[in-house]
């Protein structure tokens, strides 16, 4: 029987890049999942957790539990590495501040899967191909790789795509400088780090920057728009959508 997965839409994707969610769902359906999208979702609450106000994240965790609980899902897929890492790694600890919440979120937390991680299991033997030869750079999201430990699946998916050459940076800056609240409290510093990241990427000659984290993508593209650059910023879900075998 096909696995039933719940689809969590990260707020940046919901309100800024809705196409990414549509693409992610299409890719997951192609991969054979039954995708359930609960109504009335909100942000996961990570911004308040990260800024040092975990209590303000509680209503968001509650809503998440309310929307996704009791749906008999095999997994909950999150197409953004850092939201996935919050829901999987930090939401339960945070929920301890509210009686009864911990138990509910704990169960759901264990089902959280980052998008590429989940998709890879089903897509690894699918002949993916880009219509045009493309040089790409994969930008690693810090939370996705260092907190969740999802490092290989997106790389493997990109590498198995025909027509794609993946470029790398020898000693990369460890972060693009977004950092959520960081970018609002120290906006110029955050900008500068992003700019340096873009300089690094430019050296590789890549035309497309792929990431599986909506925050990094929004940050980097908002900086790139201020500079003369032809680099495109693409969420991994959209990239895969484009590379799926056409019927």
């Amino acid at each position: 029987m096909a696995e039933r997965i719940g689809f969590f839409v990260p707020c940046l994707i919901d309100h800024f890049e809705p196409d990414v969610a549509i693409h992610a769902i299409e890719v997951l359906k192609f991969a054979g999942f039954v995708v359930v999208v609960p109504k009335n979702q909100t942000c996961c609450g990570q911004p308040w957790f990260n800024v040092g106000l975990p209590k303000l994240a509680l209503p968001y965790i509650e809503r998440f539990v309310d929307r996704f609980g009791g749906l008999e899902l095999d997994a909950v897929v999150v197409p953004s590495g850092s939201c996935a890492s919050f829901l999987a790694k930090h939401a339960p600890e945070t929920a301890k501040r509210k009686p009864g919440l911990y138990k509910k979120i704990k169960e759901l937390s264990a089902k959280i899967r980052e998008f590429s991680d989940l998709a890879y299991g089903k897509l690894k033997d699918v002949p993916l191909a880009m219509p045009r030869p493309t040089r790409v750079f994969y930008h690693n999201s810090c939370h996705m790789s260092r907190e969740l430990g999802v490092l290989e699946p997106p790389l493997a998916l990109i590498d198995q795509t025909g027509g794609v050459k993946r470029e790398e940076i020898p000693l990369p800056l460890p972060c693009c400088g977004f950092g959520g609240a960081f970018s609002t409290l120290l906006p110029f510093l955050s900008y500068r780090i992003g700019e340096r990241k873009l300089e690094e990427i430019a050296k590789t000659g890549a035309e497309v920057v792929i990431s599986a984290d909506s925050g990094c993508l929004m940050h980097l593209s908002s900086i790139a728009k201020k500079r003369p650059s032809n680099v495109r910023f693409v969420h991994l879900a959209s990239f895969l959508y484009e590379a799926l075998p056409k019927p």
Binding site: D14, F16, A21, K39, F188, S222, K225
Partner: peptide
Amino acid sequence: ARDLPVPASRSFQ
């Protein structure tokens, strides 16, 4: 510091 990203006219949901 940035070109602000423009919110979509209609959200995904």
